[in-house]
Design a protein around this nucleic acid. Structure first.
Lengths: 234, 234
DNA sequence: ACAAAAGTGTTGAGTATACACCCATGA
DNA sequence: TCATGGGTGTATACTCAACACTTTTGT
């Protein structure tokens, strides 16, 4: 059967259930984490899954994603990126559903604990994710891969940190995003050379007796984006 | 209204029309081009648009995209990437339609001209795109941006070239993808250092009297992907 | 012989990496 | 005073960017 066929127009085409599923990243000063939820409906009720919902006709997809995040965490205006749309015919055992995947970065301590507990949710380390329903495991792997790529090109890491943070915290964040160690001298040199951070005169003493200076992210930092220094950048 | 609500499950949720739209890139040895089609159905019949169709219930999204490409160009097994899903409530004037965008790279000379002419299609330079229906103009800008990013990380340019090509051709391709000139000495040095190309002893004399050596892409070329040399690569 | 495109090396600057010790503080 | 994490500098290797002339050959 031909798909491109003037006869197959609006009212002769099939409609499909559309879901929006959201991978929520957080950072607890040690590890990159994922917020997972126990599924509330049959089938597979009680199993771990991403948070999601069916998209209603009067909401744009992005607004659907924002609502889901707000309803599950109590947060607004958080970092949100569309990831990919998943459309295998049999990805849902009940009926055909396509799902638009998003990922978001939140500051763990901002989160509204009560609303999270309502939803029977839990933070998991990204290297210790339980089995997830449907293709949510794939979505999570894709989200982690997308986060890594984007974190190398844009300073999105700051969306995972509190307003004031220390350089050792920032380093731990990048180490846990990329799952590999950095040299602290080189790390500090590079980060500071980007002129995105503002040093304060306050210290955070929760991690050491000496204390580490707190920094904040300069919102209007202009980023040097015109470098062409990558692998296939002929 | 709450989206996340156990009462809002499969049979109580609204279904939505889902379209798949495809941005088709080609390269004619001089310029990066886009294949656009005259819309066959009302409303906006006859206006330029991407090629697309409504997704049927028994096809995965990617298979829908492949079918559309096959029906419009006669080509199978071509490079195809999911771009983004477009979901504004009023993006289609007739009724709610969400559209999954794809982009594909084809070898212009492979294309089945007859099937293209059936569809009333035309190649446009990417710096000279006409006004497109709906949000297809946005899709095209997004596709060009995505192509540029991906072309810097993976050797996808070869999907736009014939099996045998010259280095000046390859350089022209990258120049037209990025819309900026390269130094031929630096370009050749860098390309050849990647060990992805196999030189043949044949020459292409269509562009000059001297002729340029033909190369082919090594399919099993292992790419050095472990460099960490980018802007936010802390 | 000449026009037109193909092909070729070197140098300087900037950036990444490797590496080890002193500092400040609370217990 | 000592254990713990915070903070600092230098030398080497590498990669990018800038730059101009010679070669080939058909007409």
């Amino acid at each position: 059967m031909k798909l491109i066929d003037p006869a197959l127009t609006y009212n002769s085409s099939q409609k499909i259930l559309v879901a929006v599923d959201c991978t929520i990243f957080g950072f607890d000063s040690k590890n990159l984490k994922l917020l997972l939820f126990r599924r509330k409906v049959e089938p597979l009720k009680g199993r771990w899954s991403l948070i999601g919902a069916f998209l209603q006709n009067d909401l744009s997809i992005i607004d659907g994603a924002k609502s889901i995040l707000f309803e599950s965490t109590g947060l607004k205006d958080i970092y949100l990126e569309q990831l990919k749309t998943y459309g295998a015919v049999d990805r849902d055992p009940v009926e055909r559903v396509i799902s638009v995947g998003y990922y978001s970065l939140i500051r763990i301590d901002d989160i509204d604990i009560l609303s999270v507990e309502d939803y029977d949710a839990k933070w998991f380390n990204i290297d210790d994710i339980p089995e997830l329903i449907l293709d949510h495991g794939t979505m999570v792997s894709d989200a982690i891969a997308a986060l890594r790529i984007r974190a190398r090109h844009e300073p999105i890491g700051f969306n995972l940190l509190p307003d004031y943070f220390t350089l050792p915290q920032l380093q731990a964040l990048y180490e846990s995003i990329f799952q590999s160690k950095r040299d602290s001298r080189n790390f500090r040199k590079k980060v500071l050379s980007l002129n995105m951070l503002e040093k304060t005169d306050k210290k955070d003493k929760s991690q050491s007796k000496k204390g580490a200076f707190l920094y904040k992210f300069k919102k209007n930092a202009k980023l040097v984006k015109d470098r062409r220094d990558f692998l296939f950048d002929f």
